[in-house]
Design a protein around this nucleic acid. Structure first.
Lengths: 254, 254
DNA sequence: CGGCCAATTGATTAAACTCAATCTGCGTGG
DNA sequence: CCACGCAGATTGAGTTTAATCAATTGGCCG
């Protein structure tokens, strides 16, 4: 019952499921095994596939094991807004049992390895595995915070600041699941997305994203070659972004 | 175990707690009583008070009984982004046990009547009242969808569209808790916020919000006098907003 | 060597911001 | 009852940011 807080760290040699990282210290062997067992039903999703469509019924929950996805909303006239990225270890469609259709679509930004979780399993979790259920609530709270950051970016940061903030967030999130390396000063990660995707994420035009990226490179803050992004001065990036994303990685359990 | 869907409607003569509306058909008398009991610890919050501060430790969860609040993030240089409004029946700080500090601040837009819920109670709910716990998850999913809509507004709608979309969302949300009246064509509700608040919600400047409001009035879509907002042509507003918010009120339970 | 997708560039336009007043409604003290 | 003060709404003018349009370039694969 006592509150505790742990720092998230990529666990050596285990699956990167974010909710597992969150609750690992509290899970029994049984629960950890159950969590592993959930991830049997693996499938490959080709890059570009829209595997959750907001106009169709949801059929299952997805756990991303490898690759990147984006949650997005498409407007009737073709405009598109990406709400957030899903990295390895993230879950899509957690609330499948609460609504018939998804509130958003999801598209594979790269080829993806994912596990399917049957809706019935989600119910089973809620009934029989309270620690896992609580960890899922924590995951939701984290997603909520990430989406809140996205809203602040879109509403109150200019293009340059948006890009700084977005790249830093991505770096920290990638680090948590072992998909990025570096230290406090600098870091690097795979960056397998087109500038159009960044534009649809940051609510900007493709051309403008291109120019802001160039400025960022000219300012010596990032470099980018062959899909590999390097953050050269993280402190400065955070400073430019006007506010930090460090509230994302606190975990405090009941 | 069978899926069911109900339309949310303001329940005659009962408290408007959104999660209660959601799960009422599934709650036992015991659970309904417990939910009422939670709301004993009432307090008044004066307009303008920042009652959740993102730099301070959270002390409890708030249930809004009367009045409006806003969740927001303040940037170091004074810019402010409102993430969403909390109307009567909404809950603030649901995830109090997951993080020491809030991901956002909350401010009273009007004088507020609210109930305080002790963190220990939240834990108790998770352990002893699974139906309520599930309803809270549903509430969270709903908040998530609302925040997603906000991100789409901010990222991909222009000023005029943002305002249309925002007002329609507010109207539908207010109707659910009996704070607005009207039918499919037109409706009205109290609108106790300054244009600066709308600006901070929609990521616009005060001056620009003023001009868009004028345009909306000139176009015969809304009227506003003495804090009373009238939506004159809801269909047209929805059409202008480019996409609907009608996914908010579906409830589908385990 | 094409063909294609993504990145880049230049020129122009449009949306929204900023700055600086002014106006209006309302409550309050004299 | 009236002048004053204040918060919020409104207006006008000029500026800035970002979008749009239209090519052009670069890299990669077959």
């Amino acid at each position: 019952m006592a509150a505790m807080a742990v720092d998230l760290q990529p666990p050596p040699g285990s699956s990167a499921l974010v909710l597992k990282l969150a609750a690992m210290t509290l899970m029994s062997e049984l629960e950890l095994q159950y969590l592993e067992g959930l991830q049997n039903n693996m499938l490959t999703i080709d890059k570009g596939t829209e595997f959750i469509v907001d106009t169709e019924d949801m059929k299952s929950t997805f756990v991303i094991r490898d690759g990147w996805a984006a949650r997005h909303v498409s407007l009737p006239d073709g405009r598109r807004q990406i709400l957030s990225f899903a990295l390895p270890g993230d879950i899509l469609g957690l609330h499948i049992n609460f609504r018939r259709k998804a509130a958003y679509s999801a598209v594979a930004l790269t080829d993806i390895q994912a596990s399917l979780v049957d809706p019935a399993r989600m119910i089973e979790i809620n009934q029989k595995y309270p620690v896992i259920a609580t960890a899922m609530s924590w995951t939701t709270a984290r997603e909520f915070a990430i989406l809140g950051d996205q809203a602040v970016r879109l509403g109150r940061l200019n293009a340059y600041e948006r890009l700084c903030h977005f790249l830093v967030e991505l770096y920290y999130r990638a680090r948590v699941v072992g998909e990025a390396s570096g230290d406090e000063d600098r870091g690097w990660l795979d960056f397998p997305v087109t500038q159009q995707v960044v534009a649809d994420t940051l609510g900007l035009s493709l051309v403008h994203v291109n120019r802001q990226f160039q400025q960022l490179k000219k300012d010596g803050l990032v470099s980018l070659d062959k899909g590999r992004l390097r953050l050269i001065d993280i402190d400065r990036l955070v400073e430019l972004a006007e506010y930090t994303t460090d509230h994302l990685d606190e975990f405090r359990f009941i």
